[in-house]
Design a protein around this nucleic acid. Structure first.
Length: 642
RNA sequence: GCCAACUUAGCUCAGUGGUAGAGCAGCCGAUUUGUAAUCGGCCGGUCGUCGGUUCAAAUCCGACAGUUGGCUCCA
């Protein structure tokens, strides 16, 4: 479950737009596309052997376009100034973008003599352009765009002159497989962006810089929320005390909601027998994304005595000849065995089994990062066993939960994706009528969220349709958080049943749902959502007491005790610093409330309250503050000041 | 997994072939302070690891590990 989603710029094939779509390309895209040509021109002047592939404008938070290329020189960020310098010259030359329609023959000839994506004919053919030409359907118009000496196979459209690309920046260099296929060679991908004017560019760069300040990896370190330790392992999150508080509060909150919705919470072990996952189909089908199986000591010893190799052991486990265990990649098999531990009447249904269940997946090393892509994570998982008639209502219930929790955190910047089956394919299990019903139920549920959603036929799993919640991180990457999936497959595989009113056995339908995905990813996204300024109920440190001088240590102790007794997470700063310094530290630690204590306060049994956003709130009786903060915590209120 | 860049004190970073530096944090002392940095001292690193080149390596080369940006993958 929990597919991680990564959406990047349109891949070439998908990018083949119709003429109409291209005409609708907005001004900014047109400008950026033109800037990509300016960049290519500049690169060729510096490195004449560059072979260009694709160079589209993209819809991305940070980047505005890229151009994929291949050449001997490896571009590094040190090269950016020189590239930009050369680009400025091209802009200054104010070359006209000229469109020229050619026949396929003519285009092929240009590519053969290396004239496309080039300043002059070259000994080497324009190999990517040749390939690109192949992809253009017969009968479609083929156009060449020229600016100065640079000729490129390009559908356009472009701005009038290179002089329009006034405000640009080369942003980043990375690599990309040609045509997005891992079997193809890797090209250098140079990202850049371009705006109408310098002010707009500067504003954009400033925004990108601001966004980086909220990166959960940076804040996670600064606020001591979590760490990933080299000695523990890649992709294995250590929740530090502060992060653990945030997670705990969230889990408490979610648990409360689960109770209200009639869920039963369960606990299950982190491993299970291989046979369990054979039944579920997870092993060895998804083998490459699981940690390798665990063999029993007795088996290892017996086989080693017979000179058995690692490969033999592996094969014996794989084939089932020997038994072993698997770190669980999903919680459903365990929950299914709980459901199946006794017979069920239709009157018992729905059975809703919930667990903050920890799962392990072998993600590729290059994909790991922060808390958003890890190898061990805890899902806010649950499995609902329902009759077909109950499906609609239960799906609705799942979305209710999402609405409540995301609403409380005011996280409304997500998109909803409904994944449906591909009508043309026959890979799907389960009765088509049931699918129809489930898809309608999911669609209705999505509609009830009151947010725009996309329907994506062909994206459903083979076992059932689903609805996903997708959010963006600070650098524009999309991550899937929650998911609600209907499953017709596992009840079959485990031969689940309930006794219906007709006294016959019936097959239940399962719903997998993890409304926030994993605690790791959710908290990672949450850190960025709040920029580390957690609302009081989530804040690891809710109040910090700052004394004016050591004379007030005793008074501080009494306030401290008072707050702690009421369950408030409070700390004291009794150092001999000035208040200004103490405030600075508390602000940097993003503590929501600071209580400044001096002579005035002690005299009147009061506290001077400072809020991290609103500043000095003045002096108030301690009782009043206790009331204020405990209410704020109980209500799970957000900072008014944001 | 692939391509590239990066890895120096707990943190942020300087140091490009000649015996390791700063600020912050920590500790000690002085100061007793009113809403975003009081002053001074001390402690702290076999420069990611291993190997190579060199009279000499944080610095050059290689392998490995980790991080970052992409690509690929993601039940």
């Amino acid at each position: 479950m929990l597919p991680h989603v990564f959406t990047m710029p349109d891949q070439p094939q998908a990018a083949r737009k119709t003429l109409e779509e291209r005409n609708q390309m907005d001004d900014l895209q047109r400008l950026r596309h033109s800037c990509a040509h300016v960049m290519a021109t500049a690169i060729l002047r510096i490195w004449p052997d560059a072979q260009f592939a694709y160079g589209p404008p993209i819809d991305h938070e940070v980047y505005g376009f890229y151009y994929d290329l291949d050449m001997r020189h490896r571009i590094t960020p040190d090269d950016f100034p020189a590239i930009e310098e050369e680009m400025r010259k091209v802009v200054k030359e104010n070359q006209a973008f000229e469109r020229m329609v050619v026949s396929r023959q003519e285009a092929l000839e240009m590519a053969r003599v290396g004239r496309l994506g080039a300043l002059v004919p070259r000994p080497e053919p324009s190999r990517f352009k040749l390939d690109l030409l192949d992809a253009i359907p017969e009968g479609e118009e083929i156009s060449i765009f020229k600016n100065g000496d640079f000729w490129d196979l390009c559908a356009g459209p472009h701005v009038a002159r290179t002089g329009n690309c006034k405000a640009f920046k080369v942003m980043s260099v990375a690599s990309a497989f040609y045509k997005g296929d891992a079997n193809n060679p890797q090209l250098q991908r140079l990202y850049g962006t371009c705006f109408k004017n310098k002010a707009a560019l500067d504003e954009h760069l400033e925004r990108v810089e601001q966004a980086k300040q909220r990166d959960h990896r940076k804040l996670g370190k600064e606020l001591e929320l979590f760490k990933i330790d080299e000695q523990v392992g890649q992709g294995l999150v250590l929740w530090l005390p502060n992060g653990a508080i945030v997670r705990n509060e969230l889990q408490k909150f979610i648990s409360e909601q689960l109770e209200k919705q009639g869920y039963s919470q369960v606990y299950t072990p982190h491993i299970g027998k291989l046979d369990l996952y054979r039944t579920s189909g997870h092993f060895p089908y998804y083998e490459e994304s699981q940690f390798p199986p665990i063999a029993e000591r007795e088996v290892i010893e017996r086989l080693s005595d017979g000179n058995c190799s690692c490969a033999d052991l592996h094969n014996a486990l794989r084939s089932g000849e020997e038994s072993g265990f698997l770190l669980k990649p999903m919680n459903c098999p365990h929950h299914i065995r709980i459901f199946d531990s006794k017979p069920h009447s239709y009157r018992d249904l729905p059975v809703r089994l919930a667990e903050f269940g920890t799962v392990y997946r072998w993600e590729q090393s290059g994909e790991l990062g922060g808390m958003t892509r890890v190898r061990c994570f805890t899902q806010d998982d649950a499995h609902l066993f329902v009759t077909p008639e109950q499906l609609d209502r239960e799906i609705q219930g799942c979305l209710e939960l999402v609405k409540i929790v995301l609403g409380t955190l005011r996280m409304d910047d997500y998109r909803v994706r409904v994944s449906l089956r591909d009508p043309a394919s026959d890979k799907y299990v389960g009765d088509p009528a049931n699918w129809e019903r489930a898809e309608n139920a999911l669609r209705d549920a999505a509609r009830s969220l009151g947010k725009p959603f996309t329907e994506e036929p062909g994206e459903a799993a083979f076992y059932g349709p689903k609805i996903d919640f997708v959010v963006k991180d600070v650098i524009g990457r999309e991550w899937q958080l929650g998911t609600v999936q209907v499953d017709y497959n596992l009840p079959e595989r485990f031969n689940l049943s309930y006794i219906g009113p007709d006294n016959e056995k019936h097959r239940p339908v399962m719903i997998h749902r993890a409304p926030f995905g994993s605690m790791e990813r959710f908290v990672g996204v949450l850190i960025e959502h709040f920029a580390g300024h957690f609302p009081v109920w989530l804040a690891p440190e809710q109040v910090r007491i700052l004394t004016i001088s050591e004379k007030f240590d005793d008074y501080a102790e009494s306030i401290f005790a008072r707050l702690r007794e009421r369950g408030v997470r409070v700390k004291m700063d009794l150092a001999s610093d000035k208040v200004g310094a103490k405030i600075r530290l508390a602000q940097l630690a993003k503590v929501p409330y600071m209580l400044v204590l001096g002579a005035k306060e002690e005299e009147q049994q009061a506290v001077s309250v400072r809020h991290r956003h609103s500043g000095d709130l003045g002096m108030q009786p301690i009782d009043e503050f206790v009331l204020r903060i405990t209410r704020e915590i109980a209500e799970r209120a957000l900072d008014n000041a944001g």
